[in-house]
Design a protein around this nucleic acid. Structure first.
Lengths: 193, 193
DNA sequence: TAAATTATTGAGTGACTACTCAATCACATA
DNA sequence: TATGTGATTGAGTAGTCACTCAATAATTTA
């Protein structure tokens, strides 16, 4: 079967594109550079992806999906609401630190005109929904501040973004437990009642 | 004197570039589109700016400088440390809400490969320094949490970023005092001891 | 007013880009 | 082995881009 090398080649193209897009930007990255970095011919890229835009969309959707999946990992093993939030918080910043290119890429799309053109995948909408419900429940239980859910969501996301960027700058912070506890304290004080 | 129309023309080019860069991205925006939007000939752009990159750098520096200046406006009239932080917080998100293109543009550069190429202006370094010292003093005075300054800085900046994006989505929140107070409470709880 | 300087134009140029396509290759099935 | 199917190549194409430049207009200076 060629299927194996088939999938591998597709993945190589996506990976090469990811790195080049983040390091140089979409439009500054010629498709020829992508195929070269992936070690394939210029033409084959258009066999796997209809257009360059199609490649960008595919990369965005697959990356965001992976991100959301990782974010929720192990959630059912935790009981307390604070524990749940701490796990998601931890999952998210760890993903950002481990996968800087993927994390940056999602960011990059987020503040770009592509954002509007991409209709959200159902799986992603489900995740957002799940998150909204968790926050709602925690507010009702008196655990989180009684402020609009959107405010919680944005504070949640952007505080993690800031943390990830900080650890990118100073990687040693990652294993500094005191620091991680401080970061959590700031985060939790922001949300808790 | 041509100086007046001279400056106006330059400003028109910068303004057209700002809008197009934000709406379409740097590389997706041809210089011809910029000059057309600015109502000038294609050639004159290169009279005012050596290259397209030079235009981007200039726009970035001037915008960031304006942002930092606005951020510090009225600071000497406030006495209490909490009042100072609240004023900077307020200045920043108001600027973001009022100048979405400028705000987005600074963001856009921030997560792009240009970031590294641009050496910070002295005026900007001064501002960052001022900020660092204020936070340091507030920690010593027991007002802010005793956590690394970089953590305060990032939490500060990213929480505002989240607030600005939220108000972009729901502009009516801007005049909702209850909401603004809630946003401040989250922000302040994150930082205060 | 004359000369020097600067602002402005827009057609032109060489380099580059996304995408195509005819040809070849790898492999599976019969 | 013969035939069919999809994978793969890379030179070719039509179009786009940043930037130039010779020519002209506007403005300043002497």
């Amino acid at each position: 079967m060629t299927t194996q090398s088939h999938i591998e080649k597709r993945a190589k193209i996506l990976d090469a594109a990811l790195h080049l897009f983040v390091d140089q930007g979409f439009h500054a990255t010629p498709t020829a550079a992508i195929s070269k970095a992936a070690g394939v011919s210029a033409g084959i890229l258009f066999h796997y992806f209809k257009t360059k835009e199609d490649l960008i969309y595919t990369l965005f959707l697959e990356t965001k999906l992976e991100f959301y999946r990782v974010m929720m990992t192990g959630l059912d093993k935790v009981k307390s609401p604070e524990g749940k939030f701490r796990l998601i918080w931890s999952n998210m910043w760890n993903y950002g630190v481990d996968q800087p290119h993927k994390f940056k890429f999602v960011q990059q799309i987020h503040n770009s005109p592509f954002e509007d053109k991409i209709k959200e995948d159902n799986a992603i909408l489900d995740m957002t929904d799940k998150m909204t419900q968790s926050i709602h429940a925690a507010i009702d239980a008196g655990i989180l501040k009684n402020v609009p859910i959107e405010l919680h969501m944005n504070n949640f996301y952007f505080l993690i973004l800031g943390l990830v960027e900080l650890i990118w700058q100073k990687p040693e912070l990652r294993n500094n437990n005191t620091f991680i506890e401080q970061a959590w304290e700031c985060f939790w004080d922001c949300h808790k009642t």
